[in-house]
Write a protein that binds this DNA or RNA. Sequence first.
DNA 1: TTATATTATTGCAATGTTACGATTAATAGG
DNA 2: CCTATTAATCGTAACATTGCAATAATATAA
Lengths: 109, 109
Amino acid sequence: MGLVKSEKFTDQQNEIALFAKVFGHPARVSILQYLFNINSCVCGDIVNQIGLSQPTVSQHLKELKHLGLIKGSVEGTSVCYCIHKENWAAMKEVMIAFLDQDIPQTDCC
Amino acid sequence: MGLVKSEKFTDQQNEIALFAKVFGHPARVSILQYLFNINSCVCGDIVNQIGLSQPTVSQHLKELKHLGLIKGSVEGTSVCYCIHKENWAAMKEVMIAFLDQDIPQTDCC
DNA sequence: TTATATTATTGCAATGTTACGATTAATAGG
DNA sequence: CCTATTAATCGTAACATTGCAATAATATAA
């Protein structure tokens, strides 16, 4: 098979999994941390920061953009990427609600 | 290729990615939510809850266990799984620190 | 227009993931 | 011992992901 049976799960569960999946690669984690730490919205030097090739970085950026977590705007010959604040906040709420569940008091294992 | 170049990233980035990866499948999200919501640490009826086959569920449980997020104890012929509280709390801290980064004030895009 | 710079896309090889049937442990109860 | 129950493992087919060389697209400058 190799394909996820999404129809077996709730929309919420699939949404959490989609967000988590995009964070499931250190390059994308690294790109996001870079965008957070840089004060101005710096562009294609992400490629220099990350030690991967330009096509590979471009592909990771595409996935982040597709999920709406970053946005890019053309600035001359280069493109400027930055965090999409509203979408990031919405994602954060969903993910933290999942992570922050109350652990049952009754100990069993 | 098809293999992640982990050596290009920090331990922290790789750790975040590993945690996120295990949440990157709705079956594992569903299993965890189930374990959170069930008061007693119920066992193999996870297979009935999740609509996937027993081997598939067992494989997902293995991954969760491997990361230390759940623990299982044998109870007769069945096995009882539940959240590993300490490890979950540690993971939560790492993930929330990542999600909760301050967005730069200077708007650029 | 031509050259240069930057980013996106294409194509593909190597590897990883998902799912399940079949089988194999492991344990409990006769 | 034998049988039933439950869960783990094996094997494997289908599909997804990762990474990069080569190339195409886009925009600026001369």
